[in-house]
Design a binder for these strands. Sequence first.
RNA 1: GCUGGCGUAGCUCAAUAGGCAGAGCACCUCACUUGUAAUGAGGAUGUUGGGGGUUCGAUUCCUCUCGCCAGCUCCA
Length: 636
Amino acid sequence: MLNVTLPDGTVKEVPVGTTPLDVARSIGEGLARQTVAAYFGDDLVDASRPIESDVHLRLVTLNTPEGLEIYRHSTAHLMAHAVKELFGREVQVTIGPAIESGFYYDFYSDTHTFSPEEFDKIEQKMAELAKENLPIERQVVKSAEAIKLFNEMGEDYKVELIEDLGEEEVSLYRQGTFVDLCRGPHIPSTGMLKAFKLTSVAGAYWRGDEKNAMLQRIYATAFTDKKELKQHLHRLEEAKKRDHRKLGRELDLFSFNDEAGAGLVIWHPKGALLRTIIEDFEKREHFKRGYDIVMGPQILRTELWKTSGHFDNYRENMYFTEVDEQSYGIKPMNCLAHMLIFKSKKRSYRDLPQRYFELGTVHRHEKSGVLHGLLRVRGFTQDDAHILCTPEQLDGEIKKVLGFVRDVMGIFGFEYELEISTRPEKAIGSDEDWERATHALKSALDDTGLPYEVNEGDGAFYGPKIDIKLKDALDRKWQCATIQCDFTLPERFDLSYIGSDGEKHRPVMVHRVILGAIERFIGVLIEHYAGNFPLWIAPVQVKVLNVTDSQAAYVEQVCEELRSEGVRVQADLRNEKLGFKIREAQMEKVPYMLVIGDQEVAAGTVTARHRSGENLEPMKPADFIRFIHEECKLYH
RNA sequence: GCUGGCGUAGCUCAAUAGGCAGAGCACCUCACUUGUAAUGAGGAUGUUGGGGGUUCGAUUCCUCUCGCCAGCUCCA
């Protein structure tokens, strides 16, 4: 008999060969139904793995994130199984992991191309195989034997995987006629798999390398019951309604135009206003924090891009133009002019830090396939700044920037993720420089008390960086703010300041953006608010609606009064029913509507309706203006 | 850039096994003077993304190109 210690400390005596599933069953049938795997100490194993010595046993159940991941991984196997049943040797299997909210499986075929029309067929086959409730069995074999097996089956990718693993033995998982190389663990049998749906098919390179073969990746989602699956699909539908590309058109904020070119935003009046409001906000915030606003030219001579290193390292992404036999590069970054400003006169340590801020419009030739609404464009404006300081000031400057990020994200109500990237293999600058800069970034991050990820070796070749990422409606992460140390540019431009010792010293440079690209930020912002902008940034804050023509003059008067106090207001004097005008204002997501009928004219008041449907008491226009100003102040 | 899908009116979408391209909303006109999410009637709306080809005839088939979508890769 063996002793099995459960998480609560109780010890069970069981015969050799008892499985975790048996243990679960002995506790309760319900628990057994939920058990998908188990921990023997720190080892994650199948629920059907026999217990052969005394162990600390922890069951992994479906209602845990870990359990769900195993469940999804098993669903991926079920899909591969179904595909092999349907297509046989025409399709080869590769790998298929669980991912956030589902899984995918990559297939190779040079004769068959998967299309969404086949999803039903594959799902049906999966359901059949699940219904058969095939046991999923683990088998450990010698690698040579496995290679022979997969060779016979014509599964070249599996053979390659085993060869690369270089292990003595590998584990295989079998369910019915289907065999897959897999570390596991898996659920006990296919009958547990109940709710799944194939969602899309797309290309993916074998092992993520664009030099390798293109595989066909089928994405799917899976949940432990049908209700949750339905809810998930519903959430996706809801997220689509927030898509900034859709809202951008509906709210008449911006557009793209084939003839103008891909990835080039055309801002319509309301979008341009929204952007202006955010830019004005940024200028105020930068002034408050001791930045100087600067402006550089849109094109600079190609020679200068050679000096900076952009010509060698970034040429493919740049646009060039030639006039009078003189070559110019259209700026993809704003740093050059900032370097020239610093260099324009002799600097003393007393002048540092210099903080140059520019709402700089840049153009980058991004690959066509990566363009995505406002979130990835070819022409965009960064809220860019370069801070030139002494090495001693670096730490403090970075902390200030992180504080700036925190303040701004707080105002917009964003949660964000932090990442730090450290020295890559190929890097310039002394160990000392890297050490100091990395330390400065880390200690500033630690100061925030927020969790952050460390991406070892993922920094730029010129310095370590902190990235701040926001999520879009579909949970895709987009880098917005970034704080980067740079050792190259001060050197390449031979920047210097005179220290207290009377000697020349090299300043340290921090490159940073807070919102990142205004375009991208607004894209994420639209989705974040689902188009319901808070009052202080809403391009139209108030719409004034008359009930009949007879109130037109009073409406004009009210608009005038509001406008003169800086309220962004629009009148709707069309000869339409009130309900119709309200509906339109509602769809435009205007925060406040002022309804003006004979009562309001007689009393000299306005009756405000919030887009939530709530009505305010009638009040004098002056009081409403105060009310609006108060609400705007709540945000910043 | 790569793989796959897609491109019809301002928007959302029909249609044609290759044979006069259609609906709703929006737009315009008229009537109605309206009190909290769509008043009614009438009217106009297209190089079917663009070029080339096959065909008596192409929105439909082929080809190139531009753009969009999903994903991969990339993202100083």
